[in-house]
Each structure stands twice: as C-alpha cells, then as structure tokens.
C-alpha cells in the first residue's frame, strides 16, 4: 500500500553528517539571555547547543528566549533557561532516524555528536530537506528518473530558503530534440506539486525560449530553471548572434526565421509574445549582438497578475 518514494529511500541512505550544519555556533551556560538574543540574531539561527568545558550540557532555543523576554528575565543566564541533557543524534546514523525523532518530539533541532561524545554539528529540519534536495538534484543531473512528488516536504519547509536549479543545454538546429528542456522542467514541477496553471505558463515560456535557441543561434545555448519556494526563475542564455533590435523582436508577427523553418510551423513571430504573456517579469538583454539572455520570473503565488490567466 505505502509506496516507498525516492525521498524516503534517500533518508535511509544519507548519513546525518552529510546534511548537518558543521561547527555550529555554541553558547556557554554563563551567557546572558540578552547576549543570546544578539547571537541568534547575528547568525540568523533559532537555537544553539550549550557547551561547558567542551562538553555538551544543554540546548537553548528562540522559544526559551521569548519566554525569558516575556518574564523580564533577559539578565538570566542561559544555564538557567536551557533544556538540560538534550536528545542527541550520532553523526554516522542515517537521516531517517532524525526524521522519526522530529516527528515524535517537539524539538526543532538536535545536537549531533560523534561516537566519542564530541559535539560535531547541529541538525534542523531545514538541514535535512536541503541535504536531500541537493542529493535529488545530483541524481537529476545524472539523468536518473525522478519518480516522486515531494510537495508536502516543500510546504513543510517553506520557511527555509530552498531552491532547485536545473540546467539543460540546447543544441542549435536540433529540431528532433527541441522541447526536451521544457519537458524536463515541466516534469520536475509536476512532481513538486506545482499547480497546473503555473506549470502551463512555465512550459509555454521555456518551450518558446528553447525553440528560439534552436532556430536562431549558431552555437546553441542553455536553459536554466531555478525553482524557489515563492517563484520560478527561467533564464535562456545563448552565444549569439544576438538580437539587433529587441523592441522589433517583441512585435507580434515579426520573424527572421527562414522559410524552411516556417514550413515546419516554427518562426511564426509570436514566440516572445507568448513568453511575455506567461511571465510576471521579463528582461531581454542582447548587447552588441554578441549574445542574448532572456530572464523570466513566474510567481508561484496564484494571486500574482498574469496575462495568460486572463487569456485562458
């Protein structure tokens, strides 16, 4: 019944030391709560292990800080407010163990120790998801088949800045494989649980940019899609010959495609119009006719304006 996803498999394969944050910021039991506040703020962290003479004695979090703040006890020492003898995990254990701990315990982070008991890192949910996504991205580059959605995971960790970047080379005049980059990006978005309307807009925009590289460049180029929690950035970069008149190229119906390409149904002169209609933001650069870069932003938030939605 329960299908094992690749993400779950990875949780069994990847070790905690591969995803944890090394050399974590630590505090001592004598640190005052007001100093702790500055430390957490400066390092943009939400908790820290408490170490005394090299030995882990506790853990203190932003929650403890808020309680102290509410009670007017900011002069108190960390030692009095921390959680003593915190649950720890071993660096050489697998990530799945920590995932189970996070499920069952209310803690937001676990100190990581080696088998000698030495503190070597700290582990948050964010560390786990970044580590696993990085692994998935590596596998994507190896062109292994990704089979699973991890939308729930994305939602759960939405607070963390997590992104996936996909690169795909596009070969000039290769009409046989044109559309491959867009298909791959579409597939990944589908697995991430992105809404069909957004996928449609990304698919149309990347397809047109990809086809432009196939039709108009001498040496091809690259499509790069960066998927962030709030938006998708698409960049199409090529090595020339560039667009002499960008404003003209944006006019619907204007095309420089030769007849043999038009006969295949390409080069109708509405490609960039299509991209613009699907994009929340679009920027074309083609300096001195040397190369062209098109940047497109599509927000994942449904409330963002988009022409494609009105047209649909």
């Amino acid at each position: 019944m329960a299908q094992i996803t690749r993400l779950q498999e990875l949780a069994y394969e990847v070790k905690i030391e591969e995803v944890m944050t090394r050399d974590p910021v630590t505090v001592s039991p004598e640190t005052s709560m007001s100093d702790l506040r500055a430390i957490l703020r400066d390092h943009r962290i939400s908790g820290a292990p408490v170490v005394e003479d090299g030995v882990l004695v506790g853990i203190v979090s932003i929650e403890d800080l808020i309680k102290a703040l509410a009670a007017g006890e900011m002069d108190a020492q960390v030692g009095a407010k921390m959680t003593r003898d915190p649950m720890t995990v071993y660096a050489d254990e697998t990530v799945v163990l920590a995932v189970n701990y996070f499920d069952r315990q209310r803690f937001g982070r676990f100190p990581v120790i080696d088998r000698e008991g030495e503190l070597v890192g700290i582990l948050t949910r964010g560390d786990i998801i970044r580590g696993l996504l990085k692994q998935l991205e590596l596998e994507y580059h190896q062109e292994e088949v990704l089979r699973h959605r991890f939308s729930q995971v994305f939602e759960e960790f939405i607070a963390d800045l997590t992104s996936i970047t996909l690169h795909r080379q596009v070969v000039a005049r290769d009409f046989q494989n044109a559309g491959e980059a867009s298909s791959r990006i579409k597939r990944v978005l589908g697995r991430l649980g992105v809404s069909p309307q957004i996928i449609r807009r990304v698919a149309i925009a990347t397809y047109e940019l990809e086809i432009n590289i196939v039709i108009h460049t001498d040496e091809g180029g690259e499509i790069i899609a960066e998927i962030q929690p709030q938006k998708i950035l698409i960049r199409a970069v090529d090595r020339g010959p560039g667009i002499p008149d960008v404003a003209k190229a944006m006019e619907p119906g204007y095309s420089t495609a030769p007849d043999w390409i038009r006969e295949m149904g390409f080069g109708a002169g509405v490609g960039l119009t299509n991209v613009k209609r699907c994009a929340d933001e679009m920027l074309i650069e083609s300096p001195g006719g040397l190369w062209t870069s098109v940047k497109v932003v599509i927000y994942l938030d449904q409330n963002q304006p988009a022409g494609e939605k009105q047209a649909a």
Binding site: A178, Y207, M264, G265, A268, V270, N274, A312
Partner: peptide, 22 residues
Amino acid sequence: LSCVMARAQSGNIWVTLQGHPN
C-alpha cells in the same frame, strides 16, 4: 506551433498537418 502553445488547452484534441517530432 507557437499558436498552439498559446491557445490549445489541457485535454484538447489538436488538428494539424505537421508530422515532425516537435
């Protein structure tokens, strides 16, 4: 093809003379 990309909707049937892989 760009017109198809712009207009055709999910679940539509597409009528065309083009037979190439794209």
